[in-house]
């Protein structure tokens, strides 16, 4: 299947590019749009972005691999990103990590076979006073306890 923005996204693409003094500056928002549209940034998606941004594929590939929020593999419907950096670690993030992995039966960087959950461990998300914390898709969940995490996972299952 050829990768291409539907009309609606093409309109958004034009709006995004128009906002910037130079087209090249629109790279991150355009990649984000592509990720929303296609789920993840496959080789075909990267080719397509390079074409519409009028830039070499190698440049787009370099950008995609540089940033942690741009995914070259599909991620689950619920993407759990647990902070592992010092303040959260001091607050007990390792225990929370062990619990999440045990509950879902997968390791860090893996997705459940049903495609529902992906677990990542990430660096500081600027929520250090309310650790341990995780980001679930767009939202922050703070002051996590084992009971709280178990409840969140149960609801999503």
């Amino acid at each position: 299947m050829a990768v291409k923005f539907p009309d609606e996204s093409l309109k958004r693409f034009d709006e995004i590019v128009r906002r910037y003094p130079k087209k090249e500056a629109a790279m991150l928002p355009v990649l984000r749009l592509a990720q929303e549209e296609f789920g993840y940034l496959s080789a075909e998606a990267i080719d397509y972005v390079a074409r519409i941004m009028e830039t070499p594929v190698a440049h787009v590939y370099g950008v995609v691999t540089f940033y942690t929020m741009l995914n070259m593999k599909p991620v689950g419907r619920h993407h759990i990103q647990l902070c592992r950096t010092l303040p959260c670690a001091l607050a007990g993030a390792e225990k929370i990590s062990a619990l999440i992995k045990a509950k879902l039966g997968i390791g860090v960087g893996e997705t459940t076979p049903d495609g529902k959950f992906t677990v990542s461990e990430v660096e500081c998300l600027a929520s250090c006073g309310s650790g341990p914390m995780m980001q679930l898709n767009d939202d922050y969940y703070e002051n996590l306890t084992e009971a709280k995490v178990a409840e969140i996972l149960e609801k999503l299952k």
């Binding site: 130079k22 090249e24 500056a25 629109a26 790279m27 991150l28 990649l31 984000r32 440049h59 370099g62 950008v63 540089f66 940033y67 942690t68 929020m69 741009l70 990430v122 660096e123 500081c124």
Partner: peptide
Amino acid sequence: AGAYICGEETGLLSSLEGG
């Protein structure tokens, strides 16, 4: 899009330039 180094002012500018 997720990179600590973009908080450094010239890293930020490179990122804002689309790289």
